[in-house]
Nucleic acid binder design. Structure first.
Lengths: 196, 196
DNA sequence: CAGCGAGGTTAGCGGTCGTTAACCTGAGGG
DNA sequence: CCCTCAGGTTAACGACCGCTAACCTCGCTG
């Protein structure tokens, strides 16, 4: 785990704030002036760092998709041969992401259609690979599942895990660890019910 | 079941198309001219039927929330005393809604923040009542669940059931009945894993 | 210390969008 | 047979928004 200790660059600040604002009010609902104000500069100063508003969204969505897929591939390689353990590792990774990067998880399935064709195709390809990776693992654990059923089940579990933004704005949920564990149990339970 | 046989009114046509467009491209991403064109009139003609674009969204969101809550109350009253049967009925109702009104389910948890304060408060209150109704039923079936845990579980299952828009744009999913049954089993499995 | 590039600033252009104004039309009723 | 009014039309206004232009100001560096 390579933890970042150096200060975030301006680009990273902008991306983080843009993600938060896009998730809160939607891509078209946020003006460039607001994004600038959120990082202490104003309006057109953003164009020293990004080609345009679209470019920020594109970089966010490609980054998310790539990070999810890369993490899943790594977990697939690192985990032992037991399919159940691999599935647990995938679930754990997705939960970490959903809990730590709520705005990004929100954008991920909400603002995809605002991208240019090229970027959208790339993101969709990464997403598809991620899904297919899950589908293969799930079918190893539950061989009774047909491929379409497994794919539906995977999408549904993503919906379950990505519901974290709807869980209490701040607090009221019983701590990060307990929430992660609850989500994990529910995901396994949902898969088991689908494929048992 | 009072099935509609008469033709839809102009207002209803507009609402239906507006819901579809809002779900596809987001509230701010759709112009009034597009909504008008979708029902064969153009642009400002909409203002003979609605006070403004906001009013359309408000009517849609209030309608959804009200319909969900009303349906749930009815099922609660009609079902027998067995808590498990009540929960099954709630799940069935939510799945019917998610499968038959995909655009509305999408709007329901995506465009809430674009409402005026008064409308947003109303919608949130209806949503909260709906959630609390589920929480009570779930805790009857699984008494081991604390209230916060039950609430988290309910939100997560909503995420699972509301994932239907992500299941194959058209086709590729194994028929409506099979999909409904799969979702139902997964929802029950998720609750069981949370509260067993 | 001159020069320069990175990273800001403000002013303003061009296009889009929600909304209003003014006008038209055809069906129904006294 | 006119009057009304529901339900359209097009033109246009005002606000906003993404983006560019032009300019400024440091901190380096040769």
């Amino acid at each position: 785990m390579a933890t970042r200790t150096d200060a975030p660059t301006r680009r990273e600040q902008i991306l983080k704030e843009a993600a938060r604002l896009f998730a809160e009010r939607g891509f078209h609902g946020v003006g460039v002036d607001e994004i600038g104000a959120a990082v202490g500069i104003s309006g057109p100063g953003l164009y020293r760092h990004f080609a345009g508003k679209d470019a920020m969204l594109a970089e966010l969505l490609v980054g998310i998709s790539d990070q999810l897929l890369t993490g899943a591939k790594r977990r697939l390689a690192e985990a032992g041969p037991a399919p159940g353990a691999v599935l647990d590792s995938l679930i754990e990774g997705h939960i970490d992401f959903a809990l730590d990067d709520r705005p990004l998880i929100t954008l991920h399935d909400r603002e995809l259609d605002r991208l240019r064709d090229a970027d959208r195709k790339l993101v969709r390809q990464l997403q598809r690979q991620y899904v297919e990776l899950w589908v293969a693992v799930v079918r190893e654990v539950y061989p009774a599942l047909t491929e379409p059923a497994a794919r539906s089940a995977v999408h549904s579990v993503f919906g379950l895990l990505n519901s974290t933004p709807h869980l209490g704005r701040r607090g009221s949920l019983p701590g990060r660890g307990a929430t992660a564990e609850l989500l994990h149990r529910m995901a396994r339970g949902a898969f088991a019910a689908a494929g048992g």
